[in-house]
Amino acid sequence: MPHVLRHCFLGLVASCLLLTSCDKKSEADPSIAGIAVANPDFSTLENAAVRGGVVEVLTNKNPDDPAGNFTVFAPNNAAFSRLGLNTADDLNSLQKDFLTSTLLYHVANGTLAAPNLLPNSTSASAFKGVTRRIINRGGYLYVNGSRILLTDVKASNGTIHIIDKVLLATNADIVQSAVALASAQVFVQPELTYLVEAVLYCDLAPALTATPGSAPLTVYAPTDQAFKNLLAQLLGRPSTSPADIRLLPKATVTAVLLNHVVAGGKFTSELPEGGTNTSLGGGTLTFGAFTNGTLPVRSTGNGTATANMVIPDVQCTNGVVHVIDKVLLP
């Protein structure tokens, strides 16, 4: 979309948002929750707020701010759709506690207006004070890996900035976060069970655990299906259990795992389009075009086949995890 048309489109969105809100509510500035209810492009956010128990919070004034304000980075319906969350029923695939924490991660105390969204600045969230980072990429602002589409939508109890991806944070290190997924503490269905088994098999948990002074990491975490697809090729039969990982040589699995880890915690908004990173195993990871907020990634052993980011930009206490749909072979 040309630059001029893009600004016209965003301006139209803002106008429609405010007009629809005023039509639905008699007051000039409805609450943050009221704006979500009034605008159909936030129906999934509305449903999430109901299930996550934060509607009352976003309807009332903020008792922890002298002016009574919140700032909310609000994912639109398309942002939730990236995670396969399109309806109220879809939200039941997430554990309620995780959904509530995720929603609170989008909330900050006080007013964080557009002029204060400065590149490399951080702000604390209502999720146990876990911070978010503002990043400039190509002249556009991102909060972590989520592009800020529209700023400073006014509400009676604060300010809304619209974003194109749901912000995800665990308030745990990379190992604890993977274990939480594998033990169904995030999704109702377990995920990353093969990755956790592989990490334990290779004794790599200490290297991925946050310790005082440890450097941040970026981890590309293959889904269970990605491991099943690889194991089916290697074993000549379908894999039925994460324990099948242990049928492979430990040194081989270790080399593969280290090929998924890169020094430095990077969100998608910071990864090199068309560039490369060197993994901790010494392999080269090559990135494709930065499109719609993600980059495909491939490794030497995969030939021309690329891995797609199915859940990008999960912030952990010692780095960032991008869940991918293919195992990266060195």
Rank of each mutant, 00 (worst) to 15 (best):
R6D: 09
H7Y: 08
C8E: 08
F9D: 09
L10D: 02
V13S: 09
S15K: 15
L17S: 12
L18D: 05
L19P: 05
T20W: 08
T20L: 14
T20V: 01
S21D: 05
C22T: 06
D23S: 10
K24E: 11
S26N: 11
S26F: 06
A28I: 07
A28C: 12
D29N: 05
P30W: 00
S31F: 02
I32D: 01
A33I: 08
I35R: 00
A36L: 14
E46Q: 13
A48C: 10
A49N: 08
V55M: 13
E56D: 15
L58F: 05
N60R: 15
P63A: 09
D64S: 14
D65A: 06
A67V: 07
G68M: 11
N76F: 01
N77P: 10
A78L: 04
S81E: 15
S81N: 14
L85K: 04
N86I: 01
D89R: 15
K96D: 10
D97T: 13
D97M: 05
T100P: 02
T102W: 02
L103R: 01
H106V: 13
N109F: 06
T111P: 00
A113C: 06
A114W: 04
T122E: 11
S123P: 00
K128H: 09
I134S: 02
I134C: 03
G139A: 11
L141I: 09
N144V: 07
G145P: 04
R147N: 13
I148S: 09
K165N: 08
V166K: 01
L168R: 03
A169G: 15
T170V: 08
D173W: 07
V179D: 12
A180P: 09
A180D: 15
L181V: 02
S183P: 01
A184M: 03
L192E: 02
Y201I: 01
Y201D: 06
D203G: 04
L204E: 07
A207R: 14
L208G: 09
P212E: 12
V219T: 13
Y220C: 04
T223F: 01
D224Q: 05
D224M: 10
Q225G: 01
L231R: 03
L231I: 10
Q233G: 09
Q233D: 05
S239F: 06
T240K: 14
T240P: 00
A243F: 01
R246F: 00
L248M: 10
A255E: 13
H260S: 02
H260L: 03
A263V: 07
G264H: 10
T268V: 06
S269Q: 09
L271K: 05
P272Q: 13
T278C: 04
G281S: 11
T284H: 08
T284L: 12
L285V: 03
T286S: 15
F287A: 12
A289L: 13
T291P: 00
N292C: 00
G301H: 14
G301C: 10
T306L: 03
N308G: 13
N308A: 12
D313P: 01
N318W: 06
H322F: 05
H322P: 09
L328C: 08
